[in-house]
Write a protein that binds this DNA or RNA. Structure first.
Lengths: 232, 232
DNA sequence: GTAAACTGCAAACGTCGTTCGCAGTTCAAT
DNA sequence: ATTGAACTGCGAACGACGTTTGCAGTTTAC
């Protein structure tokens, strides 16, 4: 009953989110690892073998230590996933300078987000958790607001639009990641007449990049430019 | 080394998807449960306590049996989640008759999807898995194609549009479910000037229902009505 | 110098999905 | 009728997971 005051977020100090929690105190011996090294190892594992490979034991083994040792640096696996996410979002820097139309700039940002998803497919499995908006995510959001500065509409509308763009990008990323894994094998197709009719006369596939741009363009113009319905 | 031929999908017969796999053979005693009862119990658990409550042991306990016994009816937990999803999608019936504008009908369908998500919040955590397109999901998709029949564009474009609508609905559902759980507590706001500027002059919140309709309207018109860019 | 705050680590805890073996039941074939 | 394969439920076990705990050793503040 003498120690356990910090542990990088144990018991009491766990109320502090991972972003502001100090990595270590000033008392004990120098730590053998660091949050950055742990997060880097976890990302390498996730890039190579998917998010399921990011287990505490797996990351610890990659670092040559035991699973329990990681809890000197993190308070939970969720913390690790939050840190991974924010570090990946940090790869979106440097932000491209807002040139020309704000809509074009937003599309460029969306394309860079999609590229990030392609580079780190595990992001899809990680972003939908309710926790963990880190400093890099905030910075990205801030940059989007900067791009949308010339748009004359309420700030809340911009919030919604940015969130929706991010969400749609994740939809595209997911559809890319799971493409080809869908199968109706064994289904009784006779019960779905419109489906078989649509399949009977094959149509050319929609170019993904066009679809991406048109979707987001329609989305942003609909959300930010169209006049809101008059209330009353 | 004498038995283990079926087990509702064991070893060899696991190649067959859950949708076409027979529930039981014709030889042994009458089963004490059924797939339907198991799925119903699982959905009740998920509705009440979230998807995490749907563990094999949890579902089995709710049915008054042991976890291992469930594998007489299902071959995996993923199968159970697939069955749950399809059963929930079945609640979208009966489909409203296509009246008036196809766009209005699609918005109506989207609204019913959103209502389904509100009724079964666990759907959000379950739909993004690459597996499990069941007969009810196919029927829903088929019905969407029926609504889009008067639209004169390629079938592939309709596929993309339907998938995008479903995806956007899930985005809204998720944003509703996680509303209020985001927090920038402890962040150094000075680093995000546009964010604080947007927050400094508060703007009225966007009505969710308007946002929903405008988003989907912009999406569908952009995807199905706008002329595709000429190739070459 | 002493005590508190730290460090790494191995072992353990509880939960999870899943497998296995066994005793009992039903039905098709003889 | 009898046999045996195909089934049933069930409890125990397996391996992996996230996390906790206790302990021995190290560093720093006072």
């Amino acid at each position: 009953m003498s120690d356990a005051p910090t542990r990088s977020g144990d018991g009491d100090s766990d109320r502090q989110p991972i972003w502001t929690r100090p990595e270590r105190g000033s008392r004990g011996p120098a730590p053998a690892h660091s949050r950055d090294a742990i997060v880097a190892a976890a990302i390498a594992l996730a890039d190579a073998d998917g998010l399921a490979a990011v287990s505490m034991r797996g990351v610890a083994t990659a670092l040559g230590t035991g699973a329990g040792s990681l809890y000197r640096y993190l308070s939970s696996r969720d913390d690790l996933l939050d840190l991974m996410t924010d570090r990946a979002v940090g790869e979106l820097r440097p932000y491209p300078p807002p040139a020309g139309d704000w809509l074009d700039t937003m599309l460029l940002l969306a394309r860079r987000q999609l590229a990030l998803h392609r580079r780190h497919p595990w992001l899809i499995d990680v972003i939908h958790r309710p926790s963990g908006i880190g400093p890099e995510s905030l910075a990205w959001f801030d940059n989007c607001l900067r791009v949308l500065e010339p748009v004359g509409c309420a700030a809340t509308a911009k919030f919604e639009a940015i969130a929706m763009v991010t969400g749609v990008v994740s939809l595209f990323a997911r559809s890319e990641a799971t493409a080809g894994s869908v199968t109706f094998a064994g289904a009784d197709l006779a019960a779905y007449p419109h489906l078989v009719a649509a399949f009977s006369q094959p149509s050319p596939p929609v170019p993904r990049t066009d679809l991406f741009e048109r979707t987001l363009r329609g989305l942003l113009t609909g959300l930010l430019l169209a006049e809101p319905p008059e209330s009353g």
